[in-house]
Amino acid sequence: MRRPRVLAFIDPWSPDPAELPAIQAHLRGLGAELGVVTKRGTWLVTPDDPPARLAEAPEADRSFEVADGATLVEALAAAGDAMRTPAPMTFTRREWALTSIAAGFSLALFGCKGKPHEDKPAPAPPPVVKAPMPPEYDIVLSVNGSDRKLKVEARVSLLDALRERLGLTGTKKGCDHGQCGACTVHFGERRIKSCMQLAVMSQGMKITTIEGLAQGDTLHPMQAAFVAHDGFQCGYCTPGQIMSAVAMLAEGHAKTDDEVREMMSGNLCRCGAYPNIIAAIQAARKGAA
């Protein structure tokens, strides 16, 4: 017994640490392992382990050739799309190539999932009237210096746009009601709670998240101070604390420890790292001065 597996023929290919997270994300979505056959060897890529080089060609439930000009990630993404939605009605040539691969691929995957369980309840009768599709809006968010295009319903929060759509999961969800501060980002120069901000209302403003704070490999002084002073334990409130603290120093209204405590009180820390956070902020202030 083994996991569902697909085989891709592509050349040249070798595991690339930059590409691997995307491949693994797609494999998690597909529920399959991937064998990659190249002229120079064969690899097995699973969702959660480093790629392994195989001595023998792997068994497969389905194999496909990655089309010219496409990457493995694109082929896997197309397969996922095909699983999710019916095939589109019109194609460009290239879409046709990818989609046809993907359609077969998805069928193969469904096949190896086996028959539905007998104890699975009968599906609910289809509702008579489907509710209307909510309107969607094409928006552009300027995040960490780059413009990111999105199509979202108006009810999508900036936080969920960052976390669920832009892959920027450094900004945390802790309460979804503006009560914990874990979702703090900079909106222009201001610190705000991104869970209370709608994405459609966030256009035209420079948004900075924790991912945009460091300069390349060089940590922002506040980030470095949090590490040095152990200003966190579990780390979940940390991006919010740091974004809040950086903005607080720029605001210039808090200097003493007690003033800093007051002006950081919108950021909860359940591990109880508060004394260390204050120490980190005051150290960063001195470093900045």
């Binding site: 999961t169 450094g170 998240t209 991912e211 940590l219 966190f232 780390g235």
Partner: peptide, 11 residues
């Protein structure tokens, strides 16, 4: 620590 302060620790 570095992963946690840069938002790259994956929960």
């Amino acid at each position: 620590g570095r992963l946690k302060v840069t938002g790259t620790a994956t929960y």
